[in-house]
Design a protein around this nucleic acid. Structure first.
Ligand SMILES: NC(=O)c1ccc[n+]([C@@H]2O[C@H](COP(=O)([O-])OP(=O)(O)OC[C@H]3O[C@@H](n4cnc5c(N)ncnc54)[C@H](O)[C@@H]3O)[C@@H](O)[C@H]2O)c1
Ligand SMILES: NC(=O)c1ccc[n+]([C@@H]2O[C@H](COP(=O)([O-])OP(=O)(O)OC[C@H]3O[C@@H](n4cnc5c(N)ncnc54)[C@H](O)[C@@H]3O)[C@@H](O)[C@H]2O)c1
Lengths: 231, 231
DNA sequence: CTGACTTTGTGCGCGCGTTCACAAGCGCGT
DNA sequence: ACGCGCTTGTGAACGCGCGCACAAAGTCAG
């Protein structure tokens, strides 16, 4: 499992009243299932078995079934799952039905790429604000949005907004603090720094160097094995 | 743990001869430790305790010590770890000492951002080839590199190269296959698709939509709790 | 040299996630 | 109407990783 992010507040309710608690590992796979389902739907399939869906999603079929059972989505024994209904179910669980607004801070190399990316909007997520500290960049038009100054943060944050940090590492903690102060409780960080957030705020990170270094490790290990253990 | 990637070949050696096998979860943290160590080194610190390093890295100190013990790196009891020596150790373990070449396929929005990013080169990783299928883009100069055509893949791949896929999802599997055919055994995929690779090839993925959707889930859940459970 | 303090390295229990394997359930052909 | 085969949902076992807590080991003062 990817332990990079954790939600410390998930256990806040001592009594799991009626809403089933979905394991974090399952949540991390729901988007994958959703994408697989869209592929199948575009392909014209109306029902799908756990085996077939698991194949497309690249996971074990038993895992898939257990995951889906967590969100109470019932398939039909002997038949499988209704694709359209399951898309609805998973989308609802992920909160994608009511459009989730995304606020992007830092319109540099990476921020520009993110802003111009159409893959988010197609699935209920839309970047609807670009912020930067550089006065020269403020006012610039990118992908139909106008870059605004970071000081206007409070004006663009609405309830339930997700913050994305694409600033240099040096400024990341400061930007993070401002996002939290503005009421943002979900943050995605691209800067290669460890950020600290108060309880109740979800923080995830994407670290490209880290991924490459992990691959480098395995590559290095393979080379060592190939040279030292071919026997 | 981040279960998104797994190395199926790690168990290839039935007898763990002398090289300790490092748990995947530990490998995933080594880059974080390395970055923390560089911060401390730049700050002038020569030695550091597990407690202090864990603080900077944002992890439990016991976990840090256990991780470091896996790679045989010995600290000094009562003192701590020698920063410079530990940087050397971790870098060696990650295979960063011999410069690892990175081949980037797909020079679009995202590929351009990656190519222009200086954060890789600073730590032993350098993108040294840009490839694209679009003839209009071939020949273009980006960050000191010339974009070459994908057909020249075999010419730019050297032993131990890491492949990065930044093409549309539609082309990802094809590009992946060509990378594997060219001898690449470590691949980082940015396209939102499940790729299949033969055994012995390490595949990791970075999925930005997925991260946002996970945050969306938690945000959605928070909203539901705030509305339904304030008693 | 001794004793007290500091810090590493690790044994152990706990909880989560994954997987197998199977019973329960549903549709369909006869 | 009725079983036959297919698929779901889940009980249970296994393995991994995390974190506490402590003994071993080294440093430093006197
Ligand atoms: N470019 C990549 O491909 C890449 C890859 C991996 C990681 N990253 C990380 O992503 C982050 C951004 O990378 P980049 O290449 O876009 O950097 P960049 O320098 O091109 O852009 C950074 C942007 O952030 C803005 N900024 C700086 N301080 C700010 C503040 N306090 N508030 C608001 N905006 C501020 C700057 O004006 C600039 O526009 C960096 O942390 C980098 O390490 C980038
Ligand atoms: N831009 C982003 O911020 C972002 C965010 C998340 C995910 N992604 C994913 O990253 C990938 C790239 O995104 P992008 O915005 O850069 O897309 P893009 O369309 O801007 O660039 C894609 C590039 O790949 C090249 N290409 C296409 N087919 C190819 C092939 N067979 N061989 C070699 N090159 C080929 C194209 O010529 C183009 O230059 C996509 O899969 C996208 O879903 C991008």
């Amino acid at each position: 499992m990817d332990p990079s992010s954790l939600s410390e507040d998930a256990l806040a309710t001592p009594a799991p009243r009626r809403q089933a608690m979905v394991p974090e590992a399952t949540v991390a796979r729901l988007p994958i299932y959703l994408r697989a389902l869209h592929v199948l739907a575009d392909d014209g399939q109306t029902t799908v078995s756990s085996e077939a869906l698991a194949e497309v999603a690249g996971v074990n079929s038993a895992k898939l079934r257990k995951d889906l059972s967590h969100l109470g989505s019932y398939g039909t024994r002997g038949v499988g799952y209704d694709v359209a209904h399951l898309i609805e179910q998973v989308s609802a669980e992920l909160g994608l039905l009511r459009h989730c607004s995304v606020v992007l801070v830092g319109v540099g190399n990476l921020g520009r790429a993110l802003a111009g990316y159409g893959g988010f909007a197609s699935r209920g997520l839309a970047i609807d604000a670009l912020l930067d500290a550089d006065r020269n960049r403020v006012g610039e038009q990118i992908a139909g949005l106008t870059v605004r100054h970071i000081d206007e943060l409070c004006d663009v944050v609405s309830k339930g907004s997700i913050g994305v940090i694409a600033t240099p590492a040096q400024a990341a903690q400061q930007v993070c603090d401002r996002l939290v102060a503005a009421g943002v409780t979900s943050i995605l960080n691209f800067a290669p720094t460890v950020l600290s957030v108060p309880p109740g705020v979800d923080l995830r990170k994407v670290d490209l160097s880290l991924e490459l270094q992990i691959l480098s490790f395995h590559e290095h290990r393979k080379a060592a094995l190939a040279q030292g253990a071919p026997v």
